[in-house]
Design a protein around this nucleic acid. Structure first.
Lengths: 124, 124
DNA sequence: TGTATTATTGCGACTAAGTCGCATTAAAGT
DNA sequence: ACTTTAATGCGACTTAGTCGCAATAATACA
C-alpha cells in the first residue's frame, strides 16, 4: 500500500500550487483539459486531503473547494480561517487571521468550515 | 402574487418550530411522513428563506439546513453565529455568540456561513 | 354562498456533484 | 526485464436539489 507518484498527482498538485486561489474540482478539470479523468481528480484530491497536503472546504454553494496547506506542520492541521467566495467572479480565497470560537461544555470540534460570500474589491 | 397560507406551509413551519435543532430537508420530510411532496418542501423552505422567516445554512457535508430566525427584526438578518453538527448523532444546532471577522479592503460580505463539526457532549 | 383567478402543489423528469466497481495501465522493487 | 499492485479510466450509480406542467385549492369578489 505504498503511494506512487503518478502523472495525475503531479499535474493536479502543480495546478493547485500554481493557482493562488482556492480551487474547485470543476476549475481543476478545466485546467487539466481532459488530461485526467473526473473520478481520478476526485480521488487524488481526497488522497491529498488525507495526506494533509491540501485542505478541503465546503462552500456555501455546497461544493467542495481545495487549497494547498501552507502552515500546517505534520498531521496537525490548522485551518481555522475563513474562506471568501466572490459572487461576481467566483474566485475563492483564504482570509488571513485565525478565528476563535468556543463550544459548549463537553463538545469536541473536529472540523472548522468558515465561509463568507460577497463581492471582492474588483467586483464591488 | 400575494402569498397564500397553505397546509404545507403551516405543517412545515410548525415542524421547524417544534424541533429546537436545525433541520435538514431529509429530517423534515420524515417528520411530515409523506404529507408533503419533496419538491414542495424545498420550495416552501426557500420561500421562508426569502421571506426572512428561516435562515439557511450549508453544512460541511454540503447539505442545506434550516432554522427558524429568532432575533432578526425585519429584513435585516444577523446570522453571524456558528452552527455545530455532531458527527455522532447528526444533530445540528446554533451556537451562541456573534462571530466577528474582517474582510480585505473593498470587500463586501453578503452571506456568512460558519460551520463546525465534531462530537456533542452526549456523543463524546 | 358561488365563482373566477392564480399561487401552490404533486408528479416526473432532469441536472450536477460526488462515489464506486472493475478491468486495464503503469509505477516501483527485485 | 519481470512481477506486483496502486492508480487510472470508464461507466454506472446515488443523492441533493431544481424545473416544467397539469391539477388543486386558497383567496377575492360578485
Amino acid at each position: 500500500m505504498t503511494a506512487r507518484n503518478t502523472k495525475a498527482k503531479a499535474m493536479i498538485l502543480e495546478s493547485l500550487k500554481r493557482s493562488k486561489a482556492v480551487t474547485s474540482h470543476e476549475t481543476l478539470q478545466k485546467a487539466l483539459k481532459g488530461k485526467a479523468d473526473r473520478a481520478t481528480i476526485y480521488r487524488v484530491l481526497n488522497r491529498f486531503c488525507d495526506d494533509g497536503i491540501v485542505h478541503k472546504i465546503v462552500g456555501d454553494d455546497g461544493k467542495q473547494y481545495f487549497a494547498v496547506c501552507v502552515n500546517c506542520q505534520g498531521k496537525k492541521h490548522n485551518h481555522n480561517h475563513f474562506h471568501f467566495r466572490c459572487l461576481g467572479c467566483g474566485k475563492v480565497e483564504c482570509l488571513a487571521g485565525e478565528v476563535g470560537f468556543k463550544l459548549p461544555k463537553g463538545y469536541r470540534s473536529e472540523n472548522f468550515n468558515g465561509f463568507i460570500s460577497g463581492y471582492c474589491a474588483l467586483c464591488s
